[in-house]
Each structure stands twice: as structure tokens, then as C-alpha cells.
């Protein structure tokens, strides 16, 4: 299972620090709200799209990630064309398209670990409010760690219930799955405490 959308390439977009890219994304999101001019927004979208060849990303991965969003966007545009006005539809669709292109570029060119460390740096000032940065990063790390483990548990439960002819009953899967997960949670907390980790 590939647990990251990052595509490794040697490009100026990849080389840009994660914090900068994230700030650029947020700034773009604000800037596009200041104009209703479709030509200006169109130019903005064109500039964003240059980023993709610049980042040397494989077309297949771009299409795979963008397609579901573009389908919704096309329906959205058609709905506006029918029910409100083509002009409003164009402006709103362009805004969404810019944001989608911009964030897709960020995701495909930036390592998850780099974004996580930006996140941790951003959250650090919140520590006095009771947000413990170490606990926070432990939770994120554990989630990533246990996704494949729980996927396997699910498969084990499914095979076991299949043998009893019960794999078509969702409850016959869901109840053992939650019981096993809660039991696992006890054992994981025990194991963390046994390692003497202070939280």
C-alpha cells in the first residue's frame, strides 16, 4: 500500500521549502477572493498549470488525483450555466480550479514528513493552550503506522466470517473488528507505558 502521494523528482517546485509552498497556497486562496474578473482568474490558473510541467510530474498521477474533482467541477459549472448565470459559473469554477491545481501541486511535490514538521512548528505556539506537540505527533505517527495493521485485521475477520458463510453480513464484520481494535488499543497503551515513554 502506497501511503503517500509524493512523487520524487528533481525540480525547482520540489526544492521549494514546504513552509513556503503552504504559505503560497494560503495566500492564493485569499487573493482569488479579491477579483471577479474571469480573465484575471484565467491568467492565474494558467500560471498555476505551468507548475506541473515545471515539476516534471507524471500525467497519469495528476489525472488520477484530479479526475474526481474535475468531474464534480464540470457538473458544478453546468449547474450554474443552467440555474444562475454563465458568468457567475465561470468565475466560481475558475476559483475552484485554481485552488485544486495549487493544492495538487503542493501534495505531489512535498514529502508528508516535511508538511508534518511545518505543522508541528505551527502548532508549537499553541502548547500553553494545552496542545502538547509531542502527543500530537505521536497520534499522527500511530495513525499512519496502524492503517496497514487494521487493514490486515479487517481481512482476517472477513476470511474468518467467510468460512462461516457470514461475510455478507456487515455487522458480522463490524462488531468483531471494533472489539479487536479496542483490545489492540489496550495492548498498545500497555506497550507504550512499558517502554517508559513519558507522555
Amino acid at each position: 500500500m502506497k501511503l503517500s502521494l509524493y512523487v520524487r523528482r528533481d525540480s525547482p517546485v520540489h526544492a521549494l521549502p514546504a513552509g513556503w509552498k503552504l504559505s503560497l497556497l494560503l495566500m492564493t486562496g485569499l487573493l482569488i477572493l479579491f477579483t471577479d474578473d474571469a480573465r484575471l482568474l484565467g491568467a492565474g490558473l494558467a500560471i498555476m498549470l505551468i507548475g506541473f510541467p515545471l515539476a516534471r510530474l507524471p500525467l497519469s498521477e495528476i489525472i488520477h488525483q484530479a479526475r474526481p474533482l474535475l468531474i464534480v467541477l464540470a457538473i458544478f459549472y453546468a449547474a450554474h450555466a443552467m440555474f444562475t448565470s454563465i458568468d457567475t459559473g465561470t468565475v466560481l469554477t475558475l476559483r475552484f480550479a485554481i485552488m485544486i491545481a495549487c493544492s495538487l501541486l503542493l501534495t505531489l511535490t512535498t514529502r508528508v514528513s516535511d508538511l508534518m514538521s511545518v505543522l508541528e512548528r505551527t502548532l508549537r505556539p499553541l502548547a500553553p493552550l494545552g496542545l502538547n506537540p509531542e502527543k500530537t505527533s505521536l497520534v499522527f505517527a500511530m495513525t499512519i503506522r496502524f492503517i496497514p495493521v487494521l487493514a490486515e485485521t479487517w481481512e482476517t475477520v472477513r476470511v474468518a466470517q467467510q468460512a462461516r458463510g457470514m461475510d455478507r453480513n456487515p455487522l458480522a464484520l463490524l462488531i468483531p473488528m471494533t472489539v479487536l481494535t479496542l483490545r489492540r488499543a489496550e495492548q498498545i497503551s500497555d506497550a507504550i507505558e512499558a517502554r517508559g515513554v513519558d507522555l
Binding site: L5, G29, Q65, F76, F96, M99, V112
Partner: peptide, 19 residues
């Protein structure tokens, strides 16, 4: 932050800017 955890293997900041 870009893990493809939504159904169909989607993820990334883009899904938060859609309709």
C-alpha cells in the same frame, strides 16, 4: 498533508477546495 486516505485513494489539500 497528502496521504491518499479518502475513498478511491484521494487526498491532499485539493479535496478541501472542491465543491
Amino acid at each position: 498533508v497528502g496521504l491518499p486516505l479518502l475513498a478511491g485513494g484521494r487526498g491532499g489539500a485539493a479535496v478541501f477546495s472542491g465543491v
